[in-house]
């Protein structure tokens, strides 16, 4: 018997248009041909993408999309901040990369070159110069592009405070490049990101001076970009008019790497 329930469930379907089997055959053929064309188009599109010129390790259309993503996200909310945590929540952070810091250095000899956009030397600073700037602490989630994250207690100087000393001399240079003393590791930052109040030239981790594995004596730290941008053992800070070279962006990663 047809139950009430059956009628209720069936009713919306009964309203659907019907066609003769003959018409169905005709439309069927057309649909399958459309499907075949669609599959062919998808395969060709996929192969087209794979055969595009490579831009720093990935097909150009993907590189362009990463750039569009950057434009979108920086426009949407450039001034937002990541959450901060209690000091007690901080944990040790793993050492993930040693590029540019494989050898130990004599920290007493260390200085950082500060260069202007025309390559001119603005300063050659030792650790004491950074100790003299306003000191801040922040407990933030450091995020690795691989997926892990750690809550880290950083101490040091806001880049924006450091920048005050050079603001007049570097004009409106839109980028800052950072390099290890041996030049093996280098990253590029856009000015908005590096001037963010949570972007820190860190001297301390967990209240103690950085050890060499974590970038002593000076590294950059932020919760708003992946760790690949957080260069350890800064040897050069260079203001730039063009987008600075970036170690990982040259190896298929996103240049912006923003969170």
């Amino acid at each position: 018997m047809t139950t009430e329930r059956e009628r209720e469930l069936r009713a919306p379907l009964d309203d659907a248009p019907t066609i003769t089997v003959e018409e169905f055959r005709r439309r069927s053929r057309r649909s399958f041909l459309t499907g075949a064309a669609g599959i062919t188009g998808a395969v060709l599109g996929w192969r087209w993408l794979q055969n595009q010129p490579v831009a720093d390790g990935i097909p150009q259309p993907l590189r362009s999309q990463l750039e569009r993503n950057e434009t979108l996200w920086t426009r949407l909310s450039a001034s937002r901040s990541a959450p901060e945590f209690a000091v007690s929540e901080a944990t040790p952070i793993q050492v993930n990369g040693r590029i540019g810091i494989r050898n130990e250095i004599d920290l007493a000899d260390w200085t950082v070159r500060v260069e202007g956009p025309d390559g001119e030397l603005l300063d050659d600073l030792d650790v004491a110069a950074f100790d003299a700037l306003p000191q801040r602490d922040m407990v933030i989630e450091h995020k690795c592009i691989e997926g892990w994250s750690s809550i880290v207690h950083w101490g040091g100087v806001r880049f924006s405070d450091f920048h005050q000393r050079y603001a007049d001399r570097v004009g409106d240079a839109p980028y800052v490049g950072l390099e290890t003393p041996d030049g093996l590791y280098y990253v590029g930052w856009d000015m908005a990101s590096i001037m963010h109040p949570q972007t820190m030239l860190a001297l301390r981790q967990g209240g103690a001076p950085l050890d060499q594995d974590h970038g002593a004596p000076l590294r950059i730290a932020t919760p708003n970009k992946y760790g690949i941008k957080c260069l350890k053992r800064i040897g050069v800070i260079r203001y730039a008019r063009e987008r600075p070279a970036d170690y990982w962006a040259e190896r298929s990663y996103d240049w912006y790497a923003g969170l």
Binding site: L76, S81, A82, N224, L259
Partner: peptide, 8 residues
């Protein structure tokens, strides 16, 4: 993807 920009 965007934990800061889309916080919370």
């Amino acid at each position: 993807y965007k934990p800061t920009q889309l916080y919370p």
